[in-house]
């Protein structure tokens, strides 16, 4: 009997912890979004964060996009050539990149590259009392520290996704046309016939917006809510990568089902 009650207490405690964590993260998100922007100070802060979150992630995005596009073209060619439809490589590369791979892979890389850095940075600021210090100076750290980082992530991810798609398709072109010798005209025309701007590129963009929201939200919250010790920060960083990767993959399924499920 005692054991049952103890287990129930344990279960209840976990549930309460989880729910209150969701509540706290919701508060942070709300503060970050409705934070009254002050153009004079917020804009330079946003620029600086765009640089560290977006610009510095560009290299990894471009390189991975290029290789993924090239591999897709090579694999696709090997399958399609059996049916004599190798000119459909362009279509295959473009559709799989634009609809699926670009938003998901970019978001996963982004979570590992920028999300973990955000968490570690905010966690370290908390550990060195910089957040408290700012609060005591009379500046809301949610507005000054959290909000620009959140917006920078939210803006950067769709841009990175577009770059990833474009570079990936270029990689597919390199392999398909330059190397395997597919006729360039049919490569493009097949692609243009099958890719729709709003249904495919637009939906990919919506996906990346959702992922951007989730990844930066998780990263910022884990940093802000971390235990301010070196162990706590390393745990928070791990949690950021794990939680945001799982959230990306789960949400991707839901979004894909909503967007393409009825076609």
């Amino acid at each position: 009997m005692e054991a049952v009650i103890n287990n129930l207490i344990f279960l209840g405690r976990i549930a309460i912890d989880r729910v209150s964590a969701i509540g706290r993260s919701g508060m942070i998100l709300m503060h970050a979004i409705i934070a009254r922007p002050d153009p004079l100070t917020s804009f330079p802060l946003l620029i600086r964060q765009l640089y560290s979150v977006g610009v510095l992630s560009m290299i990894i995005i471009i390189v991975s996009g290029l290789f993924i596009g090239m591999v897709l073209a090579l694999q696709g060619y090997n399958i399609l050539v059996d049916y004599g439809t190798e000119q459909a490589v362009g279509q295959m590369v473009a559709l799989s990149l634009v609809r699926e791979l670009a938003p998901v892979v970019t978001a996963l890389l982004f979570a590992g590259r920028a999300g973990s850095a955000l968490t570690a940075e905010i966690g370290l600021m908390k550990a060195t009392e910089q957040l408290s210090g700012m609060e005591m100076i009379g500046v809301d750290p949610l507005r000054r520290i959290i909000a620009p980082r959140f917006w920078a992530g939210f803006i950067s991810l769709p841009i990175l996704t577009m770059i990833f798609s474009a570079v990936g398709i270029w990689g597919g072109l390199l392999v398909g046309v330059e190397w395997l010798g597919i006729y360039e005209g049919s490569f493009w025309s097949n692609m243009q016939n099958s890719v729709d701007f709003f249904d495919d590129i637009g939906n990919g963009l919506i996906k990346s917006l959702v992922f951007g929201l989730v990844v930066t939200w998780v990263a910022v919250f884990q940093g802000y809510d971390s235990v301010p010790t070196s162990e706590g920060i390393s745990q928070a960083t791990t949690k950021t990568v794990v939680y945001s990767s799982l959230a990306i993959l789960g949400l991707d399924f839901i979004l894909t089902a909503l967007m393409f499920g009825d076609l």
Binding site: E129, Q130, G133, M134, M136
Partner: peptide, 12 residues
Amino acid sequence: MGMLFQSGALFT
């Protein structure tokens, strides 16, 4: 109020 934190809390 002004507060001097144990670690200084300078913005790095």
